[in-house]
C-alpha cells in the first residue's frame, strides 16, 4: 500500500531539533522515522543531525537513538542490531543516518564491512553534497563544479574538479539485498523505499538527496524544489538495486534544463557555459547507460 499523508504514522520522532530552517537532512530523518516507527534504534554519527538533535538536556529523538563516532555509523549499527537481537527483542529496526562525508568518505570502510557481513540494518545516507556541519567543505559526494570552502571558485580552479562518487553502485557492487536512491523532493518515493527496506532481511542502503539551503546557496523555502529539480533535470535519478538487478523508477524522458537548476544555486553561480556542457555530457552518458542496461 502506498504511503500517504493519511496512513502515515502520526507520531513525530525527530522534533524540536536545531537544524537550520528548511534543512533537507532533517526532513529525510523525520520522514524515515515516521515510516519505521517507535521500534527504531537510530545511529547518527557526529554530523549535522546529531549536532542539532542531541544537546543535553534538549534531546530531539522520540525513539531510541545514539551518536556514533564519525567513521562508525555502520559498525555501531552492527553492534546495536546484534545486542538487541541477543536481548531477544524482535521486529525492531536498526537504522543509521549519516551524511555524505560520513558515508562516502570517512565511513565507507565500516559501511562496506557491514554490507559484507550482511548485517540486518538500514543505512540511510542523507546527501547534501558537502561537509555542511563544519561549514561547507568538499566531500566525496560534492558534484563537479560546486564551490565549497575547500574548493573555492577562483581564477585558476572553478570549484570542485572531481565528479560525485557513485555510492549507490558501490553499495550495489557488494551484492547488497537492497539499495535505492531517493530525494526528499519526492518524499513518498523515499518513504516507500524506507518501508520496503524495513521488510527486507540483511543490509539495506538508501541514498537520499537532501539539499542544504546554507551550503547550496538557495532560499530556505527552496529545499524541496531543488530536490525535485535535480531529478527532473537528470542530474540525479531514482533507482533501486534488488535481487542483483538495477531498476530505474522514474525516467523523466525529456529533462528540464540543468543550467536552470545550477544557476539558481550560489555554489554553481560561477560556472561557465562550457562547465555546464561538461555536466550535461556526463549526465547524458550516465542516462544512456541507465536506459540501455537498467530495467
Amino acid at each position: 500500500m502506498a504511503i500517504t499523508a493519511k496512513n502515515l504514522d502520526k507520531n513525530e520522532y525527530f522534533y524540536g531539533h536545531k537544524a537550520c530552517a528548511g534543512c533537507g537532512g532533517s526532513l529525510a530523518v523525520r520522514a524515515a522515522l515516521k515510516v519505521l516507527g517507535e521500534k527504531s534504534a537510530a545511529v547518527l554519527p557526529a554530523g549535522c543531525m546529531s549536532a542539532v538533535g542531541f544537546n543535553f538536556p534538549q534531546l530531539c529523538f522520540g525513539n531510541n537513538a545514539i551518536i556514533s563516532m564519525f567513521a562508525g555509523t555502520a559498525s555501531m549499527l552492527t553492534g546495536v542490531e546484534a545486542g538487541l537481537r541477543r536481548r531477544g527483542i524482535k521486529d525492531f529496526h536498526a537504522v543509521g543516518f549519516a551524511g555524505d562525508g560520513g558515508t562516502a568518505d570517512i565511513g565507507i570502510q565500516a559501511l562496506s564491512g557491514a554490507i559484507d557481513r550482511g548485517d540486518d540494518i538500514i543505512y540511510i545516507c542523507y546527501d547534501n553534497e558537502a561537509y555542511m556541519n563544519t561549514g561547507i567543505q568538499k566531500s566525496g559526494l560534492t558534484p563537479f563544479g560546486a564551490r565549497t570552502t575547500t574548493t573555492p571558485a577562483g581564477k585558476n580552479i572553478r570549484g570542485n574538479i572531481r565528479p560525485k562518487k557513485n555510492m549507490f553502485e558501490i553499495a550495489a557492487a557488494h551484492d547488497i539485498p537492497y539499495a535505492a536512491t531517493a530525494t526528499i523532493g519526492y518524499i513518498n518515493d523515499f518513504m516507500e523505499k524506507v518501508d520496503k527496506a524495513s521488510r527486507i532481511k540483511g543490509t539495506k542502503y538508501i541514498h537520499v538527496i537532501a539539499p542544504c539551503p546554507t551550503g547550496w546557496g538557495i532560499p530556505v523555502d527552496a529545499t524541496v524544489e531543488a530536490a525535485r529539480e535535480i531529478v527532473d533535470c537528470g542530474l540525479w535519478y531514482l533507482a533501486e538495486y534488488e535481487n542483483g538487478e538495477f531498476k530505474i523508477n522514474r525516467d523523466p524522458g525529456e529533462f528540464t534544463d540543468p543550467a536552470e537548476y545550477l544557476k539558481k544555486q550560489g555554489r554553481f553561480k560561477h560556472l561557465t557555459d562550457e562547465d555546464v556542457d561538461v555536466i550535461i555530457k556526463s549526465r547524458d552518458k550516465k542516462w544512456e547507460k541507465i536506459r540501455r542496461e537498467w530495467k
Binding site: 541477543r86 570502510q109 565500516a110 562496506s112 564491512g113
Partner: peptide, 16 residues
C-alpha cells in the same frame, strides 16, 4: 573490518 569498527561495534552492543 578494522579495530575502529571492533570498538565501535562493541559500544553499540553495549548501548543495546
Amino acid at each position: 573490518e578494522s579495530e575502529h569498527s571492533a570498538l565501535s561495534c562493541a559500544i553499540g552492543a553495549s548501548a543495546a
